[in-house]
Computed example of a mutant assay.
Amino acid sequence: MAYTITSQCISCKLCLSVCPTGAVKIVDDHYLIDSELCTNCVGSIHTVPQCKAVCPTANGCVKQPSDYWESWFSKYNSVLAKLTNKQDYWECWYNTYSQKFSEQLKKQQVVV
């Protein structure tokens, strides 16, 4: 599975200099990774793809899904992660709300 450069690329040129196979190219001021040359740094001295390792943005260089189902599950996991974060938000909201509500109940009980 080759890597691809996304729209979050900031054109820092770090991936150009570290790619051991020279798969990173500039075409019409856009950075591209040639899937024919990209080996994910397998067979080199590196244990992780160097374009991904040096990218200053977290999502400037990502794995490109090789088939339909792989891309489907990738999208599914992305959406699921977002939903999980929302759940954390609501759990935090509920805890804050319940704490403030219980404080108000205690104040009312003291007054009575």
Rank of each mutant, 00 (worst) to 15 (best):
W72E: 10
W69L: 13
N85C: 11
Y97Q: 04
K106W: 03
K82E: 08
Q104G: 03
Y97F: 14
N95G: 00
T96H: 15
D88C: 11
S98K: 09
A81S: 01
F101G: 04
K86D: 06
Q104Y: 14
N77D: 03
T96S: 14
N85A: 05
T84V: 06
D88S: 09
K75E: 05
Q109R: 15
K106E: 00
Q99W: 15
E70T: 04
S98D: 07
S98Q: 12
D88E: 08
S78Q: 12
L105C: 12
F101H: 14
K106H: 04
S102M: 12
Q108I: 12
N85W: 04
T96M: 15
W72V: 13
S102E: 12
L83D: 05
K107P: 05
S66K: 05
Y97D: 01
Y76S: 04
K106Q: 01
Q87C: 11
Y68V: 00
K107L: 12
A81P: 08
T96V: 11
S71A: 11
K82Y: 07
L83P: 05
L80T: 00
Q109Y: 09
S98C: 08
F101C: 13
S78N: 14
L105A: 04
S78M: 13
K75F: 10
N77G: 09
K106I: 02
S102A: 06
Y89P: 01
E103L: 10
